[in-house]
Design a protein around this nucleic acid. Structure first.
Lengths: 132, 132
DNA sequence: TTATAAATGTTATATTATTACATAACGTTA
DNA sequence: TAACGTTATGTAATAATATAACATTTATAA
């Protein structure tokens, strides 16, 4: 059973705009877009982003300082994220590959560290950009 | 045969300070430390960092906006990086695990994307912090 | 209904990174 | 060694990303 998160007003606004965009969005570009909805300050955006990341509705693409809506219907996997990023067109998509996620979730080494979470970013050229 | 990179004056200064620190360092903390050596502007630091990343002498920890000296003697693996990060003490170490790097370097999916490079960051509690 | 937590609003500021432009040093090769 | 292209440096300004601090309001649940 999936836990239901009732998004607050600002959280809904911010999530919708990211979700509709279909790709990664940066905080200040979100801010620009939501000014018409009464959200005027960076902090309002960042607070919503923090919460949305926390509950797994969006993920942060660390290497791009950008945020993308979770593509997996369950949206509960904020602890295990993997993305492919095109270095040419900057297209980002979430990788959902159960073998990969199993492999990484079970990864352990001799450091004695307990891994709780990971983020993986692959870089390369997407199909389109490759053929240009 | 390993390619020899002759570091420039600023590059040497910046690399040495990161290397000696033994851990991740942030750009402006580096800047602070190298003022006595005549490096006064952020750009001087960022330019050296960019070059050092490019040639694989250091890596960027994306989730922390910090830079760490490459721990692998060869220092040629800027295309395949993996780190473990303690969320409590913020200790970072480079993971060198040939199985993991093979697995990831050979990873491919049906996206048609050619993966050239990856960065993986594991989060958790290190041995010390776990036992506190 | 009251108190507790979560969310919001607002201003200011901290932190991280780049643009733009001028100059100097270095490496090659003619 | 002169001329050329490339790489590195210096400097000022500013852009982009993110958080601190504090006051207030709204939602939740005891």
């Amino acid at each position: 059973m999936e836990k239901e998160h009732n998004l607050s007003k600002n959280q809904k606004i911010i999530f919708d705009i990211i979700d509709k965009s279909g790709g990664p969005m940066k905080a200040y570009s979100i801010l620009f877009d939501v000014q018409k909805k009464g959200i005027k300050a960076p902090l309002q955006v960042y607070r919503a982003l923090d919460k949305l990341v926390e509950i797994g509705k969006i993920h942060k693409i660390e290497s791009r300082n950008a945020f993308i809506a979770c593509q997996n219907s369950s949206c509960q996997i904020s602890k295990a994220t993997a993305f492919s990023i095109c270095e040419s067109c900057e297209n980002v998509s979430e990788i959902s590959n159960s073998k990969l996620s199993k492999y990484l979730s079970n990864f352990s080494d001799d450091s004695g560290m307990k891994y709780r979470k990971y983020n993986l970013e692959f870089f390369g050229l997407c199909k389109k950009c490759k053929s240009k």
